[in-house]
Design a protein around this nucleic acid. Sequence first.
DNA 1: CTGTTAGCGCGTTCAT
DNA 2: ATGAACGCGCTAACAG
Lengths: 335, 335
Amino acid sequence: MSGEVNIKRLAQELNISIATVSKALNDSYEISLKTKNRVLSLAKELNYTPNPAASNLRSNKTKTIAVIIPCIANNFFSLAIKGIEEIARKYGHHVLIYQTHEDTEMEMSFTNSLLNGRVDGILTSVSSNEYNSDYYRDLVKKIPLVFFDRVYESLDAFKITTDDYQISFTATEHLIKCGCLKIAYLYGLGNLPAGRARFSGYKDALNAHGISYDENLVLNYSEDEDVNLDNIKKLFQDQYPDALFSSIEEFIIPAYLACNYLQLQIPKDVKILSFSNMSSAKLLNPSLTTITQPAFEIGNEAAKCLFKILNKRGIDDDQNIVLKSSLIKRASTGC
Amino acid sequence: MSGEVNIKRLAQELNISIATVSKALNDSYEISLKTKNRVLSLAKELNYTPNPAASNLRSNKTKTIAVIIPCIANNFFSLAIKGIEEIARKYGHHVLIYQTHEDTEMEMSFTNSLLNGRVDGILTSVSSNEYNSDYYRDLVKKIPLVFFDRVYESLDAFKITTDDYQISFTATEHLIKCGCLKIAYLYGLGNLPAGRARFSGYKDALNAHGISYDENLVLNYSEDEDVNLDNIKKLFQDQYPDALFSSIEEFIIPAYLACNYLQLQIPKDVKILSFSNMSSAKLLNPSLTTITQPAFEIGNEAAKCLFKILNKRGIDDDQNIVLKSSLIKRASTGC
DNA sequence: CTGTTAGCGCGTTCAT
DNA sequence: ATGAACGCGCTAACAG
């Protein structure tokens, strides 16, 4: 059987011992070049690959990392995964993916199932940081773990995030400079540091420019797209905002459509600005202004950070990396 | 150390043999209820979980499956993965994900890395069926494998697909019945059975209704979104089509925008119909007609099929499952 | 019902 | 430079 190629078989065919084969395959200094070559060429010929289970058992390493995220059907996370995969492949690691669908119980359940040595490390983007900081405080002692984007702020752990507060401040300022006075805020991720930071950036920018904050201009995200659409319409009819600042991509389409339904003729009358990683953002630029997070780079950095830990080398004192988002303005009006 | 909980430890603490513990944990009929309870309660107390590597090595099962797809940042595939994960979780399996980015070499490289027992089975959606049918012909003999959506048609293997030809025919017919005479076709996935089937459905429907096929109305997909946008504009200016039938979702935004730029005032003057699994399709319905593939269900069925194979039970003679797509018409005009 | 024994494939001693 | 022997944690055969 060609499926039964193991070091024992290689050893038999070459009339040498199993140990020698093992050492040759691992490029040990003890083995002569000649033997190494004999082993390697036969291994190649027979298409030998080591049995991962045996290797894991012996070495306590799996060459596998896990990624735990709320949802894969999301432009930000799918790009982040791409970034993670790139690094994982470079290090010859495999990637397990778990979707929590924003369910904290499931998040913990998945995480717990990884603590028995199934993976070498975990990259996670949590669903909420309200209730289980104790859980994560213990967890980070048990397994190499890097938080990305959605983190536990108060935790002493490795975190890759973006400049949510700063970019939000800048974006709001941008709208103000464009002449907007009543900027509505579409609020998402309120149970996470990122969401709260974005909201603070918005409020502080208003304040810095002498515009008083009006909570009637704030709309909370609903799971139901139809509800969001209705709420935005209502917001327009009741409050007459001259701009919408959406803190999450999920609001873009309802916002866009609400304006169209109400014949507000964006981009002329109303400005829409949103966090977004839509691949077609480039094409939508003429009509929308977007804040684009460096999703791919976040994945990249998170994975690099994890491999640094795994390889126990050069871990920076600073456990926080903050990447910069981009404010992409409307191509047509520069606004 | 609390990290060192294994069956040996359990056996010692309970003064019974390792084998008994193992059997108790696996709920063997040979073990008395009393012993089982003693073992289980101690296991729970010490937070014991079996070492996967050791278990894999001994049992030749990994409780892991792999999913190989072109790209995760795609509404269809991310939904399919959701469907796969649901079933995998039900069977207590973990899911490895590999993105090929439409690169056949990478596809084979990933697949080969899984043949040494790292996973129990593979779900794959191939990037092209042009060149390596021999490769897959051998592969299906080596490891349980199910193709989904993007398959090797001629291969005797498990395949989960959709009614591409039929729905494409129906959709084209729908446009014709709405009064369209010059229906342009935005052609994607030409190197795959699905893409070719869609195209055939379009041509056959035209033919069935006495409309002659005009190759000037066919536009091929480009990787570059800007090029697609330009091409669609040019198509409108040169050929004056009264409808666009897009065979892939990637064309939707450029098509939509091209119409807007050219002030074609969709949905009034031009009809756009596209394959799409955009989550906001519901909201876009008033202006676009879509063909929605049952992506989640495809993932579901593919995974179910794989687990049937793994559990060696009830494998249907028919290795092909074809699921039905939905034609979702414009809510406003029913057209 | 319980225990003893023998590996799964690999890597790591310690001999030679 | 090479090999014999052991054990990682678990499961399966066989004994009792």
